[in-house]
Amino acid sequence: MKILAISAALTAVLATGVAADTVVPSDVVYEDGAVAMSLSGKAGDAAAGEKIMNKGAGNCIACHQITSLDYLAFQGEIGPALDGAGDRWSEAELRGIVANAKVMFEGTMMPSFYRTEGFYRLGDAYTGKAHPGNPEPLLTAQQVEDVVAYLTTLTE
């Protein structure tokens, strides 16, 4: 029985491509808004993280300006410029902010990128239709790590 259950779990893990040492969104532990351990169990890739800042999954520059990414047009003004974010915040704090900024900044406009529960009128992406159950997080565990790795390079 036990072996069966484990192999079923393993199959599920392999099917969704989630590595065994990944922390699922509901298990992330926040301490003063920060998250100490890598969510994927692996180091982040700053170059991959830089790409996520642009349109698509992250779209961080919809709200933030980053001077060193000035090749990307139309950077938003809703949040603070991220220049120097790597000086202002530790890696653990940056991970917490990206995973769920609402823990660090209560009521913030910044979306929770690694959270899958507690939404009101959840839609199926941008279709306007209802989404049954919980959604995939906006970023995968590895993408969060990549973004965090990139943010730590933003020093002045």
Binding site: L122, G123, D124, A125, G128, H131
Partner: peptide, 11 residues
Amino acid sequence: KGCVRDTRAET
């Protein structure tokens, strides 16, 4: 409808 949809919501 467009603005609500853009929040990834059910409109």
